[in-house]
Amino acid sequence: MSGIALSRLAQERKAWRKDHPFGFVAVPTKNPDGTMNLMNWECAIPGKKGTPWEGGLFKLRMLFKDDYPSSPPKCKFEPPLFHPNVYPSGTVCLSILEEDKDWRPAITIKQILLGIQELLNEPNIQDPAQAEAYTIYCQNRVEYEKRVRAQAKKFAPS
């Protein structure tokens, strides 16, 4: 494992614990031996107030490669969400998460999670990743928002 990646992720964890947006979660997972795995984080993004996503808490896994922060983490909703920019596998399609697009090593975990929260309610229809959600979003916004509200209710924190 890269010392650069681990040191950056340790800084990220410290900064997150000191200050993070209300309702968001970002925690490194534990290895079988109980030690912390900084390369694999369990996160959760709350649906934004005043949107059909409100009330939901959407679980996301963030996986970092050894060359982080040169390369972005892979962000994957578990379980996958109904959304035009979420692949059926759950992987998020967002330009700041793509090395050859808008990724920059200075982007923080907090910025990534806030960017994904923004994307939930403002899909990028130029870059669809899920045919069904994309089609319904474009053709029947009322039905799309109904499905999103049902999903938010399903993923409401207990």
Rank of each mutant, 00 (worst) to 15 (best):
S2Q: 15
S2K: 05
I4F: 08
A5S: 13
A5L: 09
L6Y: 15
L6I: 05
S7F: 02
L9W: 06
A10P: 04
A10R: 03
Q11P: 11
E12G: 02
R13C: 01
W16S: 05
W16K: 03
W16M: 02
R17A: 00
R17Y: 00
K18R: 13
K18P: 00
H20G: 01
F24I: 06
V25F: 11
A26C: 08
A26V: 01
V27Q: 01
T29S: 14
K30C: 04
D33G: 03
T35E: 00
M36N: 00
M36S: 05
N37D: 13
N37A: 15
L38Y: 14
L38S: 01
M39A: 07
M39K: 06
N40C: 05
E42K: 12
E42L: 05
E42N: 05
C43T: 15
A44R: 01
I45Y: 06
I45C: 14
K48N: 10
K48Y: 01
K48W: 01
K49C: 07
K49D: 09
T51A: 04
T51F: 05
P52A: 14
W53I: 02
E54F: 13
G56W: 01
L57C: 12
F58K: 05
K59Q: 11
L60M: 12
R61A: 10
F64C: 08
D67Q: 10
Y68F: 10
Y68K: 04
P69R: 00
P69M: 01
S70H: 07
S71R: 08
S71Y: 10
S71T: 12
P72S: 10
K74V: 15
K74P: 10
C75P: 15
F77N: 03
L81I: 13
F82C: 04
F82T: 05
H83V: 03
N85K: 03
N85P: 02
N85S: 03
V86N: 00
V86W: 03
P88E: 15
S89T: 12
G90Y: 13
G90M: 10
T91C: 15
V92G: 01
V92F: 04
C93G: 03
C93F: 00
L97N: 01
E98N: 15
E98G: 15
E99M: 11
E99C: 13
E99W: 08
D100E: 08
K101C: 14
D102V: 08
D102R: 02
D102H: 14
W103D: 01
W103L: 01
R104M: 01
R104C: 11
R104A: 10
P105E: 00
P105V: 07
P105M: 09
P105R: 05
A106I: 06
A106C: 10
I107P: 03
I107C: 14
I107S: 10
I107T: 09
T108L: 14
T108W: 14
I109N: 03
I109G: 05
I109H: 04
K110V: 09
I112A: 09
L113V: 11
L113G: 04
L114P: 14
G115M: 04
G115R: 00
G115W: 00
I116N: 00
Q117P: 11
E118K: 11
L120G: 04
L120Q: 08
E122P: 02
P123R: 02
P123V: 08
N124P: 04
N124L: 01
I125M: 09
Q126I: 12
D127A: 10
D127V: 00
D127T: 15
P128C: 08
P128T: 08
A129P: 03
Q130R: 11
A133N: 01
Y134I: 07
T135N: 08
Q139T: 12
N140E: 12
R141M: 15
R141K: 10
V142G: 13
E143M: 12
E143R: 06
Y144K: 02
Y144Q: 02
Y144W: 06
E145W: 07
V148G: 05
Q151S: 06
Q151T: 04
A152G: 07
K154M: 09
K154R: 12
F155V: 12
F155N: 15
F155D: 08
A156G: 08
A156T: 11
S158Y: 01
